[in-house]
Design a protein around this nucleic acid. Structure first.
Lengths: 196, 196, 196, 196
DNA sequence: ATTTAACCGAGACGGTACGTCTTGTCTTATA
DNA sequence: TATAAGACAAGACGTACCGTCTCGGTTAAAT
C-alpha cells in the first residue's frame, strides 16, 4: 500500500531563500551604471547584465530602476547629509548647506537622488517613494533642531526646512551652477535675521 | 495671425516651405498627450500620430520631446507667471507665490515645465534648454524689482529670487502637497523681515 | 583488523522510495493538459503545477514532455488499436483501419501519439522513442497475421504493414479530413486484390 | 487660393515599399538555420539575427517560423518532386517514389517539409498551411495521371495518391529508415496488380 | 533507535526566446 | 524641398519557461 503523505511543510517558508549575493550585485550595478552611462541610458536589462543576474531576478524584487536606485543610494545619502554640530548657529547651518550642495552636485549618491527627483516629476509612484524616504526633510530637521535655541522666532518647522534648503536645491535643479559659498553665507545670515 | 496654409514662398529659397499647419499640430498634440498619458508615456511616434504628421517632419524640426514641450509651454507659462503689481510688498510677493504654486500644481503649462525640470536631471541638453529659458528667474525678478524699494536690505538679486521661489518650488518637486497659503504668508513675512 | 560493520550497504537501495502518487499525478496532468491546452502550450512547469508536484520531481523521472506523454498514452493506445478477429479478411482489415482512424482523430491517446510523431520530426531522441514503441507496426502485424492465410501473395510483412496503414496515416497527418469509410473499403479491396 | 493639402495620396500605396532584400535574407536564413541547428532550435530571434534584419521586420510579414519555412521550401520542393515521364508505368512510379524518398530523407527542402508536417500535428494553423500547399497530393497526381492509361482499374484519385505515397511517407515519418529500393519495387508491383 | 540516503514540495537562480514597442533613418509618391 | 506614409535595423520592454539549485521536511531501509 502506498502512503498518501507527501504533505506540505506545515509552517514557515518553503523554497530557496533569496540570494543576498544577487541583491548586492544589483545594487552595485546600479551605482556603477548611473556613473558610467547616466540615468536615462540605464536599463533594467543593462542592470541585470552588469550584475551578472537573471532579468527575472531583478523584476522579482524591484519594479523599476528608480526603486533600485533609491535602495542603492539611501544609506550613503543619509550619512553624507549628516554634519557634526557646531557651536555657532550660522556655522552650523552653513556647514549643512555646503554638505548639501556637495552632495547634490558631486556625490554619486546625490546624483542618484537628483535623478530620482527628476523621475518623480514623471511618475507618481516614484514621487511617493522619494517623499516617503524624506531624505531632505529629515536631514534638515536635524540641523534645525540644533539652532532652534538661538532662533526663537522660527516659524513652522516644515516651512523652516523649506526656507533653509529650498533655495539651494532649486538652484541646483534648475541652473547649471549651484549657489556659491558667498551666497550660502548671505542666505544663512538672512535666515537668522528673519528667525531671530 | 498665422496663416493656416503652406503658401508659396514669396522670395528667398526654393523648395516647399515649412508647413505652419504641421508645426501647430505637433505643438497641440504634445499639449494633449502630456495631459492624456503623461510625460513618460509620451513618445515621438505618438506625437506624430496624434498630430497627423509624418515622423520625419517631427524630427526635422525638433530633436526631442523635451524641445517640443518647451516650445509648446513657454508662452503660456510666462503669461501665467506674470502677476499685476500690488501696492503692498507682502501682498505683491504673496500673489506671485500663489500664482507660482497654482502654475506648478494645476496648469498644463506648469505640469509641462515640471516634466522638463525632471528630464533636465537626466539629460544635460534639456538642462541647458530649461536654464536658457530661465522661466523661474525671469518671473521672480519682475516682482522682486517692484518690492526692492520697500526692502532696502535685499541681498544679491539672484539669491533673492532663490530665497523667494526655492522653498515653494522644492516643496512641490519633492512632496505630494505644496506649501499651503498659510505658510506662504509666513514665508513672505519672514523674507521681508530679513530684507528690511 | 578491519571492522566488520563499516561496509557499503550490500544490496537494495536506501532512501525514500519513489512516490507512486507523484508519478500518477504527473501522467494524469499530461493527459489533461494535452486536451486542455494542446501539445505546443504544454510545458514542464505547467505539468508540475497541474500535478501539484515539484518541478525537480518531474525532471528526476522524465527528460521531456514527450517522454511523459509516451508513458501516459502507450497502454491506452495499444488497447484501442487491438480489434477482435473477424472471419472475413476484408472485414477484419476494415475494422482495424476504422479503429486506427478513430484512434488518430478522436481518442486522447491517439492525439497524444500524433503529437509525438510530430515532435519526432524535430527531435531525434523522440524519433527513437516513438520508433522503439513501434505502436503502429505492432498493431498492424497482429491483424496481418490473421489475414495471411487468405492472401497467399502478400509481400514482406514490413511492406504489408506500410501498405495497409500508410495511406490512412499519411492522410490524417497531412490533411484536415481522414479517408472516409467508403475509401477505406476501396483501399482494403485493392490491397486484397494485390495480395491474393 | 492656396492649397491646404498635405493630403493622403489618393490611390495606391504610400510609404516605403517592402524590401525584397530583407525578404530574401530571411528566407535564406531559415534555410541555413534548419540545416545548422534544426527546427526546434530555430527561433524567430535567431532568424532575424542571421538574416541581419530587424525582429519586427520578420513579424511584419510572417507570423511563425513555420510560415517562413513553407515559403522558403515550397519552390525547391515542387521542383524536386517532379520526375520526367517514363514509358513503363512501373518505372514511372518507382522513379517518383525514389525521388520522394530522397526528398524526405536527404534534401534540405524535404527536411523542412517534414518539420512542417511535424509542426502541423501541434498547430492547426500550420496544418492548414501545409494542406493548402498540397505538395504531396499535387506531385502524386502528376505521375498518377500518366499511368492512368495502363491501369484501368484505378480507384478514386485521392485514394490512389494515398496508396502510392502513404506507405513511403509514413515509414519515413515513424521509423529511422525509409523503405529500401527493393520494397519500393514490390510496392509498385502490388499497386499495379491492384489497379490493373 | 539512529543514522543515512533518496525522495518530496516550493521557489529563487542565471539564461534566453517571446511578441510588442519606440527609436531615428530611409525611401516612396505627392505637392 | 517639405510632406504623410510606412518599412527598415536596432534594441529595451516585461513575461514565460528552461533546467538547476537550495531550502525545510519526509520516509524507510541499514545500521
Amino acid at each position: 500500500m502506498v502512503s498518501d503523505t507527501d504533505h506540505v511543510p506545515p509552517g514557515g517558508k518553503a523554497g530557496r531563500p533569496r540570494s543576498e549575493r544577487a541583491r548586492r550585485a544589483v545594487l552595485h550595478a546600479v551605482d556603477d551604471l548611473l556613473v558610467d552611462v547616466g540615468y536615462a541610458a540605464m536599463t533594467m536589462k543593462g542592470i541585470a547584465e552588469r550584475a551578472g543576474v537573471g532579468r527575472q531576478t531583478v523584476y522579482r524584487w524591484w519594479s523599476t530602476k528608480a526603486e533600485i536606485l533609491l535602495e542603492a543610494c539611501l544609506v550613503d545619502a543619509e550619512e553624507e547629509l549628516t554634519t557634526p554640530p557646531r557651536p555657532d548657529a550660522a556655522d552650523d547651518l552653513l556647514a549643512y548647506l555646503t554638505a548639501l550642495t556637495e552632495f547634490l552636485t558631486t556625490s554619486p549618491a546625490g546624483l542618484a537622488y537628483r535623478a530620482l527627483i527628476g523621475e518623480a516629476q514623471h511618475d507618481p509612484v516614484v514621487r511617493d517613494l522619494v517623499h516617503q524616504a524624506g531624505l531632505l526633510a529629515l536631514s534638515a530637521h536635524d540641523v534645525l533642531r540644533r539652532v532652534r535655541s538661538s532662533a526663537p522666532n522660527m516659524p513652522d518647522e516644515c516651512l523652516c526646512a523649506a526656507q533653509l534648503t529650498g533655495p539651494v536645491v532649486t538652484q541646483i535643479l534648475t541652473t547649471p551652477e549651484p549657489l556659491p559659498e558667498r551666497l550660502l553665507e548671505a542666505h544663512v545670515a538672512a535666515l537668522l535675521r528673519a528667525w531671530r
